[in-house]
């Protein structure tokens, strides 16, 4: 058994695991009760799934030129999903779209949500 066979098996495992995480993300969006819980399911397992799928693709392709673009996809996905989930969560909180009955501790709702502060950025 050569190293290409090992890489193929690893690639298959990565692709399957990645597809599994994407499936869990989809089920989570369907089943969880409110917007903020759904944000967890929609952003995180999906990113892990994508990383695993791309790792599988990289192991199968085994081309240096493909590695660069796959790594770029991972970096951009990780940096944009953080900002996107933050913006959606923040907008939901400010618009009052939060099920407070699901929260055990709410340290932000106790304070006024509409405080202003100097942004500092030019």
């Amino acid at each position: 058994m050569s190293w290409t066979d090992v890489a193929d098996v690893l690639a298959a495992a990565c692709l399957l695991a990645g597809a599994g995480f994407a499936l869990v993300a989809a089920i989570g969006v369907l089943r969880l009760p409110d917007l903020l819980s759904r944000m967890h399911a929609a952003t995180k397992p999906q990113v892990i799934g994508l990383v695993l799928v791309l790792a599988g693709v990289a192991l199968r392709l085994r081309e240096p030129s493909a590695l660069g673009i796959l790594a770029l996809v991972v970096v951009l996905q990780m940096s944009t999903s953080v900002v996107a989930s933050h913006m959606v969560g923040r907008a939901a909180f400010r618009a009052g779209q939060v099920r407070h009955d699901l929260l055990v501790v709410d340290e932000l709702g106790d304070e006024a949500a509409d405080w202003q502060e100097p942004r500092g950025a030019p």
Binding site: H40, T43, P45, V82, S85, H86, G89, F93
Partner: peptide, 10 residues
């Protein structure tokens, strides 16, 4: 934010 289970809301 990248660790699942927590989202920065503010």
């Amino acid at each position: 934010s990248l660790v699942p289970g927590s989202v920065v809301v503010e």
